[in-house]
Structure formats: structure tokens, C-alpha cells
């Protein structure tokens, strides 16, 4: 079964064709990063405007390059939430029109479930149950994936998402948008012991996260240095900040895996591209007999292939959408 998938929840316009959930025939991604760079972050109105312009081009090249036609497609899938409402609406409207005119089933997909499914593409033998850490600019979750269609949220952020803290700290340190990769890169050149930032573990038995205190601590430290003319290496701040985030993410994930008895941990979402996180998780979880999975970088960013993969399992479970499908910016996973 070949599914044509559309992803437009933030600033990536992406179209993919995925066969049977695991085989990516094509995964075209048009990134708007260069357009949003000068504003220091994604501007929703500009993102939406560019999705309308780019989507037909990306779709056409996906078909041309894969040498497929609409006749070869069995269903249309689209991210319908969570995400930026205006951006989501472009993809949803296009998907509904395509599905209707082509007379194919329509499958509305949850973006977070899509990020988790990126691991199905990377690891063809990976099957639930497993534990997943979803980390991105908008989300931080520890989720038990019971089955392709069944999720239990075990922990979530009480304030900022991990990626949000990365972006904020990067901006104050003067790194260009997107901040996450810049911090990750700088952290490799800095001293992680330079500044001891707080690790917020909350209650020992809680799997929830909180990053706003850490974010404030870093910003206060930088302000303090600037006011008192104390010199600092921004690589050191980046490294110390990243270490504080990773300590909490990795520690809680391992603790959670132990408590649930799950032997497999998948990292998903934009921040799963963070080299520091990948290395730390693999090492610490590995020592405890847990296998760690994360997808290639191209599958960590927002992309339609992961949506096409998840859509296959939605379809198998009988979860298709009707023509009333709408964008749901706050869509939940449970």
C-alpha cells in the first residue's frame, strides 16, 4: 500500500510517498529556515504563506522523481495536529481536496505519533511496546507505546519544551536560528563543568519535566556576566546548559524504562538530532541493558515520510478521516 503524505505543521513543507509503513519511496522536504532566520524564529503567517506557494511544487517533484502518478497512490495522509494552526490548515485543505478529487481514503495523522514512527522507517524490525522520549521545540514527553495505536503518557513538561529552552539560550548567546544544532555544535567545544546549572528532577517518582528554571538560570548568569563585565566563553555556557538538560532527559528516561520494564527506548522529535543526547542516552541506557533507537537526521526534522509511516498503521487500525477533517493545533496523543 502506497501512501502519499503531507506535512506542513511548522516551517517545513514536505511530501513523501511511503509503502507499507516502512519503505520510503520519496521524502521531499522544502525547508523555510532561510526565510525565517532573519526574524529569529518561525513566523506563523509567513510559514503559512509559503506552504501555499510551495506545496504544489514539492508534490509535483515528489511524483516526478519517484516516477509515480496519482494512480499509483492508495491513500492520502496529512498532519492535522499538533502544530501552527495556519500552517496545518494549508496541508489539511490540500489533502482533503486531493483525496476527494482522486477518490482515495484520507488519513489525518498526529504529528507526535509521526515523530515516533520515524523510528519504524529507520528500524524495519522495531515494533511496540517500547518507551519513547519525544523532544522537540514544542514538546517533551515520555510515552509508553503499547501498540501502534495505543499510547500512555508517563511524563510531560510542566512548562517549557526542551527544544524551546535550547532556542532561547541560543538566541541570548547570539547563535542564529535554529538554536538547537548551534548549541549542540558549540557544546562539543566547550567545558560542560564550567558552570553548574540546576538539574530539575521534580519529585523522584515523577517522570514530568521542567525546564523554565534552568532557562532562567542560564539567562540570569549571562546577564550577570554582562553587567559585571565578566568574560565568559559562550561555548562553555552552551556545554554547561546542554549537560544540565541531558542529565535530566537521560536520567528520567532510564529510570522510566527500569520502572516500566521496557527494554527498548526510542528518541523522537527535532531534538533527537542532538548528538550529545544520542551519545549520552546510548551510553547510559546501554549500561543498563536497554537498546536505544533514534532515526537518521533527515527523519528527526519535520518530514512527511514519518507521517506516511504512521498513516499506514492508522489505516490498518481502521482509523481514516472524513471530509470534515480539521486542523487541531492542540491535538493530544492519548
Amino acid at each position: 500500500m502506497k501512501i502519499l503524505a503531507i506535512e506542513s505543521s511548522c516551517d517545513e513543507t514536505s511530501i513523501a510517498i511511503v509503502e507499507d509503513g516502512r519503505n520510503v519511496i520519496i521524502n521531499k522536504i522544502y525547508s523555510q529556515i532561510d526565510i525565517h532566520k532573519k526574524y529569529g524564529g518561525v513566523v506563523p503567517e509567513i510559514a503559512s504563506r509559503n506552504h501555499v506557494i510551495k506545496l504544489p511544487y514539492v508534490l509535483e517533484s515528489a511524483l516526478t522523481e519517484s516516477q509515480l502518478t496519482f494512480d499509483d497512490i492508495d491513500a492520502i495522509a496529512v498532519t492535522h495536529g499538533p502544530g501552527l494552526v495556519g500552517a496545518l490548515l494549508v496541508g489539511v485543505s490540500a489533502a482533503k481536496a486531493l483525496a476527494y478529487a482522486l477518490n482515495k481514503p484520507l488519513i489525518g495523522v498526529n504529528h507526535i505519533e509521526g515523530h515516533i514512527a520515524a523510528n519504524y522507517i529507520q528500524f524495519p524490525d522495531l515494533k511496540p511496546p517500547f518507551l519513547t522520549l519525544v523532544v522537540s521545540g514544542g514538546h517533551t514527553y515520555l510515552i509508553q507505546v503499547n501498540a501502534y495505536e495505543s499510547y500512555t503518557i508517563l511524563g510531560r513538561t510542566l512548562d517549557d519544551a526542551a527544544g524551546e529552552a535550547f532556542d532561547k539560550v541560543a538566541r541570548v548567546l547570539g547563535y542564529p536560528y535554529p538554536g538547537g544544532p548551534a548549541i549542540d555544535q558549540a557544546a562539543r567545544e566547550g567545558n560542560a563543568e564550567a558552570v553548574k546549572f540546576p538539574r530539575v528532577f521534580l519529585d523522584k517518582n515523577s517522570f514530568d519535566f521542567s525546564f523554565s528554571g534552568l532557562k532562567s538560570a542560564v539567562l540570569n548568569y549571562i546577564n550577570h556576566c554582562k553587567q559585571k563585565n565578566i568574560e565568559f566563553k559562550r561555548e562553555d555556557i552552551a556545554a554547561s546548559f546542554q549537560a544540565a538538560v541531558l542529565d535530566v532527559l537521560v536520567e528520567k528516561t532510564c529510570h522510566c524504562a527500569k520502572k516500566t520494564g521496557l527494554k527498548k527506548v526510542c528518541i523522537a522529535g527535532g531534538v533527537s538530532a542532538n548528538q550529545g543526547l544520542r551519545t549520552r542516552m546510548k551510553k547510559q541506557a546501554g549500561e543498563e541493558g536497554i537498546t536505544v533507537y533514534y532515526p537518521d537526521l533527515v527523519l528527526c526534522t519535520d518530514n512527511a515520510a514519518m507521517i506516511g509511516s504512521m498513516a499506514y498503521y492508522d489505516y490498518q487500525a481502521g482509523k481514516t478521516s472524513d471530509l470534515y477533517l480539521n486542523a487541531e493545533p492542540g491535538l493530544n496523543i492519548e
Binding site: 501555499v52 506545496l55 508534490l59 485543505s93 490540500a94 489533502a95 481536496a97 478529487a101
Partner: peptide, 13 residues
């Protein structure tokens, strides 16, 4: 955008 994305979808399909 809803109107345009819909019309483009029909036309492209």
C-alpha cells in the same frame, strides 16, 4: 489560504 489550497489540490489532482 483554505480556498487556494483546496482549489490547487483539485487542479493538481
Amino acid at each position: 489560504r483554505i480556498g487556494m489550497a483546496t482549489a490547487k489540490g483539485f487542479a493538481q489532482a
